[in-house]
Each structure stands twice: as structure tokens, then as C-alpha cells.
């Protein structure tokens, strides 16, 4: 099996993997494939360079980063060793698994949000305790469907949720919303959004305070969910939610670029 075939296999299986290639220096084009707990496949043309760069590549992969690193021809990394020495530049590309969006509530808005999330490259899980609503027939775009209460959902997925992931709670039902919010707050998920009118939101906040959640914890909860773009249909609402997720991750203000100044990217 070629290096490319193995890369393709790992990418399709969503196995975390990173590709490192010499882009400048001796052996330009030499390539290796690195995954945690697996032997290094391929190499960078020098054993010591391969060993040192493979270690760095694993570090970059764990951080989900793509970057260029500089070495001496035998993998030297200290600045003194690199003086008067040709530099080898190694491009390291991390393929982390896709971000995960967990949507609570098999409602009208769910299918539009799941479609928008797929467009953005998320793995999408739709959860609802009601078996008749949470079906693959209604949500063919979802990667997984769970007929379950929030506790069980977080038992399954909670440990994996991180800064790139999102939990969207669209249930409108306190007996589902409250445990879902509590469960999401116990994870490291980057975005928690909860749908509801301003009135529903106010009542929900009271309930959450009653169950003992503090205002600093509740500061993580985006409720009512989404950006104020005047969205009305499920599709428009999905865009409003996804826009908020992107803006929260990038720390941007979500105004029109025509109304702001400064760098766009």
C-alpha cells in the first residue's frame, strides 16, 4: 500500500494523522505520515531528521495545527547548530477529525441546522428522547441519531467535545433543555447555544439558577441562540446559528465588513 493510499484510508476513517514533507533543502519532496501510536510511514531522507520531525509532527497534530518547521540536515533544532548550515524546511499538515455538532431536539429547525453544519464540515449528531421524531428518515444528513436523554448523550460524547465543537439545544422543553445545558457545561465544548424566545430564555435562566448553576458558568451559554440577522425560516435560523458559532470561534464582531476597518482574514 502506498503512502497516499494509507493517507486516504486514515482520512476517510477520520483517524487523526499528519503529513510532513520537506519543501526546501536536501530530499525536497520526501514525505512521511504520522499518527499517534502508529509507526512512522515514509521518511524525510535522513534518519535523525525523520525522528526529530516525527516527534514535532505528533505535537502539531495533537494541537490540530498546520505549520512549517526548520531543521538542520540531520534534524538539528538548536540555533547554534544551524549557523552556517543549510536549512531544511518541513511543512507539517495536521488532519484532525472534523468538528462535532450535537443537536438536541428533532424539530423543524434541526434539519436545516444539520444541513448547514454539514456544509461547514461538521460531523452531526441529532438527539431526541422521542423515538418517532428522531429518525434517519427525517434527518438523512445526520451522521448519527441518538434516541436518548441528555445524560446518556453526554456519557457517550461528552469526553470528546472540545473547543472546535458545538452543542445546539433546540428542544424548547425545560425537562430536556435544563439537563442538556447542565451536561454541555460539564464538557469543554467551545459553543453552547439554546433556542427560545426572550421570554423562554428568561424563564430558563431562572430554572438554571434554581438547579445551582452560577452566572459565570451560564456566561458560556448563548441564549437566545444565533446572530441578530432577522432570520425567520429554519434555513435562515441555521445560518444565524452557524454565523454565531464562527464569530465566537474567531472572536469577531459579526458586523458587515463594509462597516468595519482592518484586516479581513
Amino acid at each position: 500500500m502506498s503512502l497516499y493510499d494509507e493517507l486516504a484510508r486514515r482520512l476517510r476513517a477520520h483517524t487523526p494523522t499528519a503529513l510532513a514533507v520537506v519543501i526546501d533543502g536536501p530530499h525536497a519532496g520526501a514525505t512521511m505520515l504520522v499518527s499517534p501510536g502508529e509507526p512512522v510511514l515514509g521518511g524525510l531522507g535522513n534518519d535523525e531528521l525523520t525522528r526529530v520531525a516525527a516527534r514535532d509532527t505528533l505535537g502539531e497534530l495533537e494541537a490540530g495545527r498546520t505549520s512549517t518547521r526548520h531543521y538542520g540536515p540531520q534534524g538539528q533544532t538548536t540555533p547554534e547548530d544551524l549557523v552556517d548550515s543549510p536549512t531544511v524546511r518541513v511543512f507539517i499538515e495536521s488532519f484532525a477529525p472534523p468538528p462535532h455538532m450535537v443537536i438536541f431536539g428533532a424539530v423543524d429547525f434541526t434539519s436545516a441546522l444539520a444541513r448547514a453544519a454539514k456544509l461547514l464540515g461538521y460531523r452531526v449528531t441529532v438527539c431526541d428522547a422521542r423515538k418517532v421524531f428522531a429518525t434517519a428518515r427525517r434527518f438523512p444528513m445526520a451522521d448519527d441519531i441518538m434516541v436518548a436523554w441528555p445524560d446518556e448523550v453526554f456519557l457517550t460524547h461528552g469526553n470528546h467535545l472540545g473547543p472546535r465543537d458545538a452543542v445546539c439545544i433546540l428542544t424548547h422543553d425545560p425537562k430536556f433543555d435544563v439537563p442538556a445545558i447542565q451536561g454541555a457545561l460539564r464538557t469543554k465544548v467551545g459553543y453552547i447555544g439554546v433556542m427560545g424566545s426572550r421570554k423562554t430564555h428568561a424563564k430558563r435562566m431562572e430554572r438554571l439558577a434554581e438547579v445551582g448553576l452560577h452566572s459565570d458558568e451560564l456566561g458560556r451559554v448563548m441564549s437566545p441562540i444565533g446572530l441578530d440577522i432577522g432570520a425567520r425560516t429554519p434555513e435562515e435560523t441555521a445560518i444565524s446559528i452557524c454565523g454565531e458559532i464562527i464569530a465566537r470561534r474567531t472572536g469577531r464582531t459579526a458586523q458587515s465588513l463594509s462597516a468595519t476597518t482592518g484586516a479581513i482574514h
Binding site: I23, T66, S67, T68, F91, E93, A263, I264, H265
Partner: peptide
């Protein structure tokens, strides 16, 4: 062809 670096404003990120 892979983007390995950008300076200033670039429409696509490395990778």
C-alpha cells in the same frame, strides 16, 4: 499543489 504559507491577506489557509 498545497498552500504552505501565506503573508498578509490570503483567501485560503495553509493546507
Amino acid at each position: 499543489g498545497r498552500v504552505v504559507g501565506i503573508e498578509g491577506s490570503g483567501p485560503r489557509d495553509p493546507g
